[in-house]
Simulated scan of single mutants.
Amino acid sequence: MMDRRQFLNHASLLTAAALLPTSGCSMSDQPQFKMGYQLFSVREDMAREPIDTLRKLTLMGYEDFEIYGFDADANKIYGHSPTDFRKVLDDLNITTTSGHFGFHPFLDKPLAELDRYVDQCIDCAKALGMPYITWPWMAPEQRSLETFKRLPEMLNRIGERVSAAGLGFAYHNHDFEFVEYDGQTGYDIILRETDPNLVKLQIDMYWVMHSAKQTPKELIASQPGRFVMWHIKDMHKLSRDYTELGNGSINYVEVLPDPTLSGLEYYYLEQGGNYTHNAMQSAKDSADFFKEQLQRFL
């Protein structure tokens, strides 16, 4: 039998447990995900000294990376073959889980050339042990309603080829997807006309907060389970340009969506420019802020 003191202690624990959040972001002490970084943020350092740059980033706490700049003609990434670069990653005990690849030039090329390039991306990803291939960009002259009307078919085609190879394919947004054309946006078209099983989504929360009429939480609620990757970067309070996490106007404690509802698998901190001091110091400042203020939510 439970005495009165044991009963009261038990009741207090149950009351406290009931007050804890039952949905939304995790509050566990142990993060579920590795802290990732998009290497475009330190592109000049990666061009000069890729191995030393990666080593310094690991000392800041980054464990996972998203690559960019694959040279398909030379089959090189940061001056190394994918196989040799994988050895670099393994030696540093880090991973790369997504890559931004240059798909947009193939909007105006024969499908056979696109297929060949996709196969090269697949080979690179497999050599690196990288589960996702990501479409990151369109050139300014390509950003039109006509492009968005024909883009879904191309995304589905890439996704089908990547999926058949045992990998995932995702689309990364900027601001131009949220321009309206007769009451709909390019992003609306992508969401509506691509196959969710073939084309996943990488949400850039900065650009959503900058340009979309929906919040990241609202976008994710409209396509639950599909936003498998996040880009997290802050917005300068005056210029609205990039800035270090914690130095800007985005309150990520409020903005971060539910990772489970999102289908989150990987996230990457990022800062494409507008560094307060230099790119590497910005990477450290963002890492420090994220670990102190935000990592517990993941």
Rank of each mutant, 00 (worst) to 15 (best):
N93E: 15
M2D: 00
M209G: 02
L151D: 13
K56E: 07
D285E: 09
F148H: 10
I158E: 09
Q38V: 07
L59S: 10
Q142L: 04
H231W: 05
P31Y: 00
K56C: 02
H172F: 12
N274G: 00
M2C: 00
E265M: 06
D84A: 12
N93W: 06
C25D: 02
R226Y: 05
H10Q: 15
T15I: 13
L198Y: 14
R43T: 02
T243R: 04
E63G: 12
R226P: 15
K284H: 13
L256H: 06
V88I: 13
R4V: 12
D45I: 00
L298H: 08
Y132P: 15
E180H: 14
D52R: 13
Q223K: 09
M2W: 08
R150C: 07
A125P: 00
F70P: 08
F103A: 11
F227T: 11
A47D: 04
K87T: 12
D84T: 08
L59I: 04
L128C: 14
V42Y: 01
M27C: 03
R5S: 10
T15G: 00
Y242D: 10
L89Q: 10
D258I: 04
K291V: 02
E193P: 02
T95H: 09
I189L: 15
T185N: 09
A127N: 11
R55W: 00
G272A: 12
A17W: 01
H104Y: 13
H100C: 15
P131F: 00
K237C: 07
L57S: 12
D241K: 13
F7C: 00
L8G: 01
Y62V: 11
G166E: 06
V255Q: 05
N75D: 10
P21V: 00
L294S: 01
R240M: 04
E265A: 00
K237N: 13
L198I: 10
L128F: 10
K87D: 12
C121S: 11
A47G: 01
D234R: 04
D73Y: 11
N156P: 01
Y62G: 10
M1H: 14
E180T: 14
D29G: 14
A127S: 14
R43S: 07
Q214H: 11
F289G: 09
Y206P: 11
K200H: 11
Q223M: 12
T96Y: 05
T53I: 05
S12K: 06
V199T: 08
W137L: 08
V88A: 10
S222V: 03
L92T: 15
L198V: 10
Y117E: 15
K34E: 13
G246I: 06
A11E: 10
R116Q: 15
L298Y: 12
P82M: 14
P136Y: 03
G168E: 13
L155H: 03
V179P: 06
D188V: 05
F70Y: 15
G246H: 07
P50F: 03
M209Y: 04
F103D: 02
Y242F: 14
F178A: 06
V179F: 09
V162P: 12
